[in-house]
């Protein structure tokens, strides 16, 4: 069984934010919520690198582990989804997520949060596939239509890969092999800089 994964090739990402726009447009994401963001390391400094970040659909998802109402589930494709009817907007998943994926629309005054919203890998949610209810709550269900997430399919430089993890890693491995060496985006030097 395939495990759906995202991978952003930082050597290719040009920070165009096309993935962010494509996601918002495809899923009609409300104002104030970004299911996907582009993060730039060393912005403005020569050699800056950008990566597109959303829910990474963790195999052992910490959001699911901390959810007090157990509203998370993982599909057979390895996509982590949640039931908005159960979500109480407590924010635990936001604190648990290392990628800042869970987002909360502001629904009322005094900062009251609405139901959590996050990337669904364009796989909808626990409603009838491609129904109006599913679209309203979770957005588009492209996987049920035999398509891949809009952000990855729209990526102009093919930096963002999304799909079966095995294929994604094969593509990335081939790229790295042809480029030579290893990407210098990740690693201790990036995290802690040079001493």
């Amino acid at each position: 069984m395939a495990r759906m994964k995202f991978l952003c090739d930082a050597e290719r990402c040009i920070e165009c934010n096309g993935c962010v726009t494509a996601c918002k447009n495809e899923n009609e994401v409300p104002w104030g919520v970004n299911r996907r963001r582009v993060v730039t390391l060393d912005d403005g400094i020569p050699g800056e690198k950008s990566i597109s970040v959303a829910c990474m659909h963790c195999t052992d998802a910490p959001c699911a582990a901390v959810c007090p109402v157990d509203c998370f589930y993982t599909t057979d494709d390895g996509v982590v989804l949640h039931d908005k009817d159960l979500c109480i907007g407590c924010g635990y998943c936001f604190y648990a997520c290392p990628f800042g994926a869970p987002q909360y629309p502001q629904k009322e005054a005094f900062g009251v949060r609405g139901k959590m919203d996050k990337c669904t890998f364009c796989a909808g949610g626990p409603e009838e596939d491609n129904s109006a209810a599913e679209f309203e709550k979770y957005g588009s269900n492209r996987l049920a239509q035999g398509k891949l997430p809009m952000c990855a399919e729209m990526c102009a430089t093919k930096a963002l890969l999304g799909g079966d993890g095995d294929v994604v890693s094969d593509i990335y491995r081939e790229r790295i092999t042809k480029r030579g060496g290893r990407p210098d985006t990740w690693g201790w030097d990036t995290a802690y800089k040079k001493a």
């Binding site: 157990d70 589930y73 949640h82 039931d83 009817d85 159960l86 626990p126 409603e127 596939d129």
Partner: peptide, 15 residues
Amino acid sequence: LHEPGVYKGSVDPSV
């Protein structure tokens, strides 16, 4: 360490 609980929401057709 937290262990995920049992999902209590409605059933997803894709599952």
